[in-house]
Amino acid sequence: MTEMSTSRSAELTLLVAGESSAARSARATLDTLIGDGLAEASHVRVIDVLQQPDYALRYKVYFTPSLIVETSTTTTTIVGDLHEIDEVRSLLAAA
């Protein structure tokens, strides 16, 4: 599936702010995606911007949680708690 290959090769960075419910929801979605094989665990990282504010500055992330999807050619930002997994799946596919 082309869908799978795109997201699997992408670098995923989830930026969260502390341990909010939105952060927990986003993490859970990310875990599901990895479990589904839609994302490669080695290409996924989670960063707390309150601990490492430089990342917020670097990615121009003002909203949390934010999932940054970087391929060799594009950068897509998905903002929100990602609780609608299907929606996230299709966004990832489009990335």
């Binding site: 930026l15 702010a17 911007v49 309150l50 500055l57 121009k60 949390t64 930002t77 998905i78 966004l91």
Partner: peptide
């Protein structure tokens, strides 16, 4: 700071602006 909202931005679910606070902090 050259910031601007990313052009390829999607919204999925609830979120807050703590990223902005983190940016200011940084």
């Amino acid at each position: 700071l050259e910031t601007g909202v990313p052009t390829d931005l999607h919204i999925s679910g609830r979120f807050d602006m703590q990223g902005l606070i983190a940016t200011l902090l940084a």
